[in-house]
């Protein structure tokens, strides 16, 4: 990497900042270079101790969004700042995968319960062959039919909820990505 590469990359990564802000930042680094070169340091040496443009721009962007959040007091800005600070990886791990797995787990469990309930009359009919008390068998069949009814309703509910969840979750993911990329929807 050369000095020019450093400045080009920094400039590119700070594209989203207002021009004056970006120019001030670049001027600070330019001044740093001038002082270091005046002291007789080599370009490569200066670059190595400065740190990568990627890392620096991340910090500068996070600061900028945090400043915006403070000034404008907008929730979206605040969130964006938080996500920028935490980074994409950490955010996905905690806020997306965690709740996602939990909800999927609950839905699966409910589905299994509903299927089991629907199957109970068949089990009862099977066992009625072995129970010679016809009154008891009839009672059993009634009860298991009732259970099967509950199972059907539960199943229908779970399916409806899963669909709604899916829609909501895709929206949620999309808006996350928007937030993380720092693209403002309505501005």
């Amino acid at each position: 990497m050369t000095k020019d590469d450093f400045f080009n990359e920094l400039q590119r990564r700070l594209e989203k900042l207002p021009a004056t802000e970006r120019e001030e930042i670049l001027a600070d680094y330019e001044e740093h270079f001038q002082h270091a070169q005046f002291e007789g340091k080599e370009e490569q040496e200066i670059l190595a101790s400065l740190g990568s443009p990627r890392k620096l721009s991340k910090e500068l962007l996070a600061d900028y969004y945090l400043g915006q959040a403070k000034e404008k007091n907008s929730y979206a800005n605040l969130l964006r700042a938080v996500f920028k600070t935490l980074g994409l990886g950490f955010f996905n791990l905690i806020f997306v995968i965690g709740p996602f797995l939990a909800v999927i787990g609950v839905l699966l469990a409910l589905m299994v319960v509903s299927v089991a309930l629907i199957l109970t009359p068949f089990a009862m009919i099977g066992s009625a062959i072995w129970i010679h008390d016809w009154l008891l068998s009839l009672l059993g069949i009634f009860i298991t039919f009732m259970l099967a009814g509950i199972g059907l309703m539960l199943g229908a509910g779970v399916i409806r909820f899963s669909k709604a969840f899916y829609r909501w979750f895709t929206n949620y993911l999309q808006s996350n990505l928007r937030l993380i990329r720092g693209v403002q929807k309505n501005e």
């Binding site: 001030e24 930042i25 680094y29 740093h32 002082h35 400065l50 740190g51 500068l60 600061d63």
Partner: peptide
């Protein structure tokens, strides 16, 4: 001035010197 601050601090511990400037801005 900025470069002076960077030098003073990096004499004491290892940092990416570039990170001082965002801090000063903040």
């Amino acid at each position: 001035y900025g470069y002076e601050l960077v030098n003073k601090i990096s004499e004491q511990f290892l940092i990416a010197e570039g990170t001082i400037y965002p801090l000063l801005r903040r």
